[in-house]
Deep mutational scan, measured.
Amino acid sequence: MIIKINGKYYKIKKIEKNPNGKYTITTENGKKYEFKNVKIFSEEELK
């Protein structure tokens, strides 16, 4: 799965839903981001 952050695309390693309704997304390079609204892309959609 792929996520778009600030115009760049990252591969997703893990998605966790937090009790506060936000999502914590861990990218393949180990960085964590927290979002309220998340749009996930499949690799097929990006081709």
Rank of each mutant, 00 (worst) to 15 (best):
M1I: 11
M1Y: 11
M1W: 15
I2S: 09
I2D: 02
I3H: 00
I3N: 00
I3D: 00
I3G: 02
K4I: 14
K4C: 15
K4L: 14
K4P: 02
I5L: 06
I5H: 04
N6R: 10
N6G: 13
N6K: 11
N6F: 11
G7H: 04
G7F: 02
G7E: 05
K8N: 07
K8H: 11
K8F: 08
K8A: 08
K8Y: 08
Y9K: 04
Y9N: 04
Y10T: 07
Y10L: 11
Y10R: 04
K11P: 05
K11A: 05
K11N: 06
K11H: 09
I12V: 14
I12W: 01
I12S: 00
I12Q: 00
K13A: 14
K13V: 15
K13E: 09
K14E: 12
K14M: 12
K14P: 00
K14I: 08
I15N: 00
I15Y: 03
I15K: 01
I15S: 01
E16N: 03
E16C: 11
E16L: 05
E16W: 04
K17M: 13
K17L: 14
K17A: 07
K17Y: 10
K17V: 11
K17H: 07
N18I: 03
N18Q: 12
P19Q: 12
P19H: 10
P19I: 12
P19W: 07
P19S: 12
N20S: 08
N20G: 06
N20I: 03
G21R: 02
K22H: 13
K22Q: 12
K22A: 14
Y23K: 01
Y23E: 00
Y23T: 06
Y23D: 01
Y23G: 00
T24Q: 07
T24V: 15
T24G: 02
T24P: 00
T24F: 07
T24S: 06
T24Y: 10
I25D: 00
I25N: 00
I25M: 02
I25C: 02
I25H: 00
T26I: 11
T26G: 00
T26E: 10
T26S: 02
T26C: 02
T27M: 15
T27V: 12
T27Y: 04
E28M: 14
E28Q: 12
E28A: 13
E28P: 05
N29M: 05
N29R: 05
N29W: 05
N29C: 11
G30W: 01
G30N: 06
G30I: 00
G30Q: 01
G30K: 01
G30T: 00
K31L: 12
K31N: 10
K32R: 11
K32E: 14
K32Q: 13
K32L: 07
K32W: 04
K32M: 11
Y33L: 06
Y33N: 01
Y33M: 06
E34V: 12
E34D: 05
E34K: 05
E34P: 02
F35D: 02
F35A: 10
F35L: 13
F35H: 03
K36S: 14
K36T: 15
K36Q: 13
K36H: 11
N37C: 15
N37E: 13
N37A: 09
N37H: 14
N37F: 14
N37R: 08
V38S: 05
V38T: 04
V38Y: 04
V38P: 15
K39F: 14
K39M: 14
K39N: 10
K39P: 12
I40V: 09
F41S: 06
F41T: 08
S42D: 09
S42V: 12
S42G: 10
S42M: 13
S42A: 08
S42P: 08
E43T: 03
E43P: 08
E43A: 03
E43F: 03
E44P: 09
E45D: 14
E45N: 09
E45P: 07
E45R: 05
L46A: 09
L46G: 08
L46Q: 08
L46H: 09
K47W: 02
K47V: 13
K47T: 11
K47S: 11
K47D: 10
K47N: 12
